[in-house]
Design a binder for these strands. Structure first.
Lengths: 201, 201
DNA sequence: TTAAAATTTGAACCTTGAGTCAAATTTATT
DNA sequence: AATAAATTTGACTCAAGGTTCAAATTTTAA
């Protein structure tokens, strides 16, 4: 029991710390989404958590690191969506539709935010986030290509399908309000239908 | 002739001034689009015009005023597009398609930028820009409703059609590069087709 | 109960970039 | 060429907000 306590205690600490760090980032990300990165001060972030500006620096190196982690979290979630697909069971069109639906639900249901302010990141951080975004876009482009190969998606530059697609997501993220009249699932239904029709032959 | 000169001289001055002021705003708007409002300093704006920071204040009251005028110019151009439509000659779908094509061409061909950073405007300025944007959105929503009434557009919440639509435009504006491989007209063709199919029955 | 570790804070510091202004320079007019 | 107006500038001020840190407070384990 003494041993159990010895082992458990430091573990709990780390979990606590990680959880609080995560809540800092999620709360900040939500503010960044609503007001923008530069219109959100460290004081704002701290206050919305009942803390002081200085306390944030116990969890985080920089303001920029918060932005980086916000982006990273979002793209990690999107990666999960992409990984959870069983690639060969569906037509390209159905696969794209499923991914799109999951993305819309991710942005409306869980608190994940798709941020646009990549240019406030510098150097390596910026490169990493852009690379991650590109990776995701390329993955989706591949799905479109599969759909064109199996005949379920119209011909045309696959990148343009994906840009259209990503545009809807980014904009959704900007106007969607959890408290608003439009419910996440309805939005998903509409968007998915519009996408499906837009890409079929 | 003396009179002609007297009349002409002050007029020329105003034209010069207005033209230079306009070029300040256009140049700044382009930088805002590429790097973001807060990542663009007054020095940056001045340098790209071969001027000094201080000289900008001869043409403009504020940095915020530049942002305001950037937004205002864009929405004025979009208004022109909407006004140039002959409403009753086309089906709703065709009208929407025409508007969308013109918007895409506006953003790719002329230097007009659709900025997202409304939250960096304060008070009355912010309200005016939001009102202008709403007005345009409502206009487009009306077109969608016409299309639903005349049977050329599928049923469904008209706002969602417009959000999808606006998302594509905003995102286009973020990634489009005049120097890039994708040519404006091709993008317009693709986007219009995807929209058309996406909204028809 | 106590001491060590973890967490939080108040009060500064420091950098960046917006904005000002009187003086210098350029341009237009006679 | 002379002068008045328009335009531009260098050098400065100023505020906002990100960052630091030593000290205070809270939490945990024995």
């Amino acid at each position: 029991m003494t041993q159990a306590a010895n082992i458990k205690a430091p573990f709990d600490r780390d979990v606590q710390f990680a959880a609080k760090r995560r809540s800092v980032i999620l709360s900040a990300a939500s503010a960044f989404r609503r007001r923008g990165y530069h219109n959100t001060s460290m004081v704002d972030i701290a206050q919305s958590l009942g803390l002081t500006k200085a306390a944030l620096y116990y969890y985080v190196k920089n303001k920029e690191e918060i932005l980086y982690e916000s982006h990273a979290m979002t793209y990690a979630s999107m990666d999960e969506v992409l990984q959870s697909q069983q690639p060969n069971e569906l037509s390209g069109r159905d696969a794209l539709e499923a991914v799109f639906r999951n993305f819309v639900e991710l942005l409306t249901q869980s608190g994940v935010s798709l941020l646009t302010d990549v240019d406030s990141l510098k150097g390596e951080w910026k490169l990493q986030i852009l690379a991650h975004r590109n990776k995701i876009e390329r993955h989706v482009i591949e799905i479109v290509k599969c759909g064109q190969a199996d005949g379920s998606i119209r011909s045309g530059d696959p990148r343009l399908y994906v840009f259209f697609f990503m545009g809807a997501l980014n904009w959704l993220n900007a106007w969607y309000d959890v408290e608003g009249r439009l419910k996440g699932e309805d939005i998903a239904d509409h968007f998915v239908l519009q996408l499906r029709q837009g890409i079929m032959k």
